[in-house]
Design a protein around this nucleic acid. Sequence first.
RNA 1: GCCCCCGUAGCUCAGUGGAUAGAGCGCAGCCCUCCGGAGGCUGAAGCACAGGUUCGAGUCCUGUCGGGGGCACCA
Length: 576
Amino acid sequence: MKLLTTEHARLIAEAIQKAQSTGQLPPFELPTIEIRPPKKADQGDYACAIAMQIAALADIKAANTNPFDIATTIVQNLPAAGFVSRVEAVRPGFINFWLSEEWLKAQVETIIAEDDTFFRLDKGLGKRAQVEFVSANPTGPLHVGRSRGAMVGDTIARLLEAAGYAVEREYYFNNAGVQMVNLGNSLRIRYLEVLGQPVQIPAEDDTTFYQGVYLQEFARDLVTEQGDALKDADWKPFKEYAEKRMFEIIRGTLRRVNVVHDVFFNENSLYESGAVWETLAALEKAGHIYESATRENADAEEIEKAQHMAPAKWFRSTTFGDNEDRVVVKNDGNPTYTLPDIAYHMNKLGRGFDLLVNILGADHGAQYKVVQYGVKALGMDASKINVVIIQLVRMIRDGKEVKMSTRRGDYDTLDDLIDQTSPDVVRYILLARSADSHLNFDLDLAVKQSNDNPVYYVQNAHVRCAGILREAGARGLSDEDADVQLLGSAEQRFLRKALELGEVIDVSTALLEPHRIAFYAHELAGIFHPIYDEVRAMHGDVSPEVAKARLRFYRAAQVVFKRVLNLMGMSAPERM
RNA sequence: GCCCCCGUAGCUCAGUGGAUAGAGCGCAGCCCUCCGGAGGCUGAAGCACAGGUUCGAGUCCUGUCGGGGGCACCA
C-alpha cells in the first residue's frame, strides 16, 4: 500500500506543472506539497493548502493573485486517478479530495492480501538503522523509569522496520566502573553473611552498598554452587557472578515485554581495542586537548582550589558551543565517561549505518551534547546521531508520588509491574506519551482491569474481529468470494482511518515520535467499536451476500489491528 | 546563576504553520433479548500571561510567571 498523501501530492505537482506549461500559472519554485486529512468530514478525505503557500511567494504576491484562483486552476489541471472521486477548491484556497468509495471498499482485499506487510513502506529500503536503548549497567534489575526508554526504543525500531529499514537494536553497557566494584563487594558481604561469617551489613545510607534482596539470593546460590571456596576472595569473582546473573535477569525481563537486542556492546572492548586512547590521540592531534589543573579561563577561586591538584586533560568543547570545557582524562590517568562515549559513537558512525538513534533519559540529557562536540571535533557528522531525550517517569500510587532508588532496594522493578499488570499494559502505558512529556504512571490505574484502561479497549477490537470470524466458522459461514462493494458507509469510515496507518508510520519515524502509533491505535478502535455495534453480520435480517461482505470487512479489520498491535510490540489476543 | 523539557477541559494527555482545538477518565443523562458487556449514544467544560513573525499561530520567536530535570577530575 502506498502513502495516500504522497499519491495526492503527485497529482497536485502534475497539475501545477501542466498549468505552468500552458501559462495558466507563472513559473515559481514549488514549495513542499503537504497533504493532510482534514478535521471536518465536509472538507474531504485529504486536503492541501498549497495554493495559499504559492500565493504568499514574493513574485506571486506582487501580482496580487488570490489563493482561491490558484487552487481552482490546479483543480482544473488535475489528472484523473482511480482513488479520487471528487476534488474541489474552496475559499480561502484549500483543495479538498474525496476518496472513491468503490476504490475504498476494494481496499478490503488489499489489506487482507498484504496482511503483516500492510503499509510496509519503501522509504528505508536498502538502508540500515541502529537504535541504541536501555543501556543500563548491570547493577540491578530494570526499574520502571528505565523501561520507558525500552518501550520507546523498541517501538521506534519496529516502526523503522515497517518503514523499510534493516534495523539493529543495540545495548551499550559498562561493567568496569566503580559501581560494579561496589556491586561485587556487596555480593561478597552477602556471601560471607550466608556462610555465617561475622560481617557488618552496611547502613542504608551507605552509597557503596547495594541493599537489594536479589543479592541475598545470588549469595545463597553462590554458596550452594561453590561452598566456602570464595571466602578469602576479593570483589572480582563476586562482580563477575553478580554481573552474569544480573544480565540474565535484565534480558529475561526485556524478553517478557518483547524487547530483544541484537548487539550487546561492552564499553570495555573500546579499551581492549585501543579505541579509547586512539580517540584521545586524535583529539590531541587536532588540537582540542590541553593539560591543566583547571579549565582555561578559570577564575581566581577555581585556581586557588586547584593549586595542589595534578593536571588533568581537558577537551576544549567550548570551541563547538559547549558552556564549559570537559575533563576527559582525570589526574589519576583514568578517562572520564566522556572519552569512551566519544569513542563509542565514532565506532557506531564507522559501522556504516544510514540512521543512528539513541534513546536517553532526561537525566543524561546534557551529556550527549558533549559527545556530539567530540564527534564534531574529530571531523565526523554529528547530526547523523539522532538523540531522543525521554522525560522522567513518575510513579503514582494512591494519588501520591512513589520515590525510587535502585541502591536502596525500594524500587518498582519492571518485573514487579509486569506481574501486577501485563506486558501489554506496561508497553502501552509507557509508549502512549510524547517523550517530551513527563509521564505519570498511575499504578492503581494500570493494575485495574477495567475500561479506564485503554489497552483493553484497543485489544478488544481485535478480539471482536477474531470472535465474529470464529463464530461464523462455527456456523459454516465463509467470507470467500465476498462482494465488498456491498459494504456501507460505516465500514468505509473505518477503511479511511485504516489507510492513514502509512502516514503514522512515516511521520513517527521521521520525527522519532513513536507515541503517535499508540494514539492512532486508540482512535482506530474508537471508530471500530461503534461500527461493530451497528454493522451486524449474523443477524436474521442481513442477506447472505451482505453478511459475507461484512465478514470480509471484519477479516480486514482484524489484519489492521493485528498489524498495529504488533508495531507496538503488543499481543493481538483472540479472546479476552 | 546557566542549560534542557513542559504549562491545552475538574484529572491524565493528543494535536507534522492551515479551515469550527480532540480523546480517555471523572461528572450528568440515556441505549442494547448480543456475533462483543473490558460495549454503544448524548451533554457541560479548555490553548498560563504579554508582545512579535505570518495570508494564517495551541504550534515558530522574545519576555514574564509556574512545574520537572540537568549543571563532578561519578557513570
